[in-house]
Design a binder for these strands. Structure first.
Lengths: 179, 179
DNA sequence: AGAAACATGTAATCGGTTACATGATTAT
DNA sequence: ATAATCATGTAACCGATTACATGTTTCT
């Protein structure tokens, strides 16, 4: 079994019951947000299918005048399916960056725009880092703390690298050799 | 225009003419390999379409008894299409890691298997790092050097983090508090 | 008053992977 | 001998995104 949205749902539900909406939120704002994501259009159908297959159970809370709140939880079959998925060897990490692709061709860009781009990205990274710092003050399992720390380590390294080496791209007409 | 395989091909061809096969190789082994990839099944159709649209030109070398070698190069229209694509704002970085997902549930895993997994991943990261060090000794454009250095910075940080914090996952029964 | 959060779901579309098909040459 | 590299292409399939459809409640 691959680590697709279904497995993702199983994993999140193994931490406790949740609705589709909450799964999406935890993926967006939780300590996994920097390396996991899924859209509603993927989560809801996954949850239905998982229910049909008996891997999750669904309890509905009805509030008149609005959509039901469907609270999902892992069944025993779901637990063992997930433990099974956990036994498979994880595939390679995938990192794709349009930003880095752009920087490859930094010399095709106006200097001003290049600097803007770098500043903006740096700001985003700093914001993510701050978010991760916030996560760390919340009570987390060892796995989550490790993973959150990993994210912090990587973003810190990226920021530091970009800050100290951006001159390589922005200094167009030679000059003092750095590093 | 998004940064899809077509744009990727345009970008690589802007560095010089190449065949589909070579584009794939440069993506696999070149200094971009850690954040860009594409399969033959995506590259060849992209190149055909780009030819139909007049963004690349194709010159075929025929060698009797084997498939033609089709050498592609950017046309002027292709160059401006690429410069145009470069003007668009890059989307967010996407990083997905099944490995990290697995570590989230480290407590569900047998201790031995966990250690194996970490060791294996560490070895892979070190191999990638060594590859990047090799790339750096080759003459590279500033953009490529920056990007290659960025990869090195990130992999170095990841390795160091995992090495110094793996105890958080492997030490199951409490013990000395670290960090 | 208006935006954002809460809440679920479907359908069209898409970009891309995987597997298949073919076959010569070169290195181990 | 056998595997790897060179070399191009097609077709089936897939997982997922985006946009759409709907409607309440709460915050600003």
């Amino acid at each position: 079994m691959a680590f697709d949205v279904r497995t993702l749902c199983l994993g999140i539900l193994s931490m406790g019951e949740a609705t589709g909406y909450e799964i999406k939120k935890v993926l967006e704002d939780g300590p996994f947000g920097h390396f996991l994501e899924a859209s509603f259009g993927a989560i809801y159908p996954a949850l239905s299918r998982l229910t049909d297959e008996g891997l999750v159970a669904c309890r509905a809370e009805t509030h008149p005048g609005r959509p039901e709140r469907k609270i999902y939880s892992l069944t025993k079959a779901g637990q063992s399916a997930f433990d099974n998925a956990l036994r498979s060897t994880p595939g390679p990490d995938r990192f794709r960056s349009e930003f880095l692709f752009l920087l490859l061709f930094a010399d095709h860009l106006p200097a001003e725009r290049l600097s803007e781009l770098i500043d903006a990205r740096l700001a985003e990274y700093r914001a993510k880092l701050a978010e991760m710092d916030r996560h760390d003050s919340v009570a987390l399992s060892p796995g989550m703390r490790f993973v959150n720390g990993h994210g912090r380590a990587i973003f810190t390294a990226a920021i530091e690298y970009i800050e100290t080496h951006r001159g390589l791209l922005e200094r167009r007409l030679g000059g003092v050799a750095a590093e």
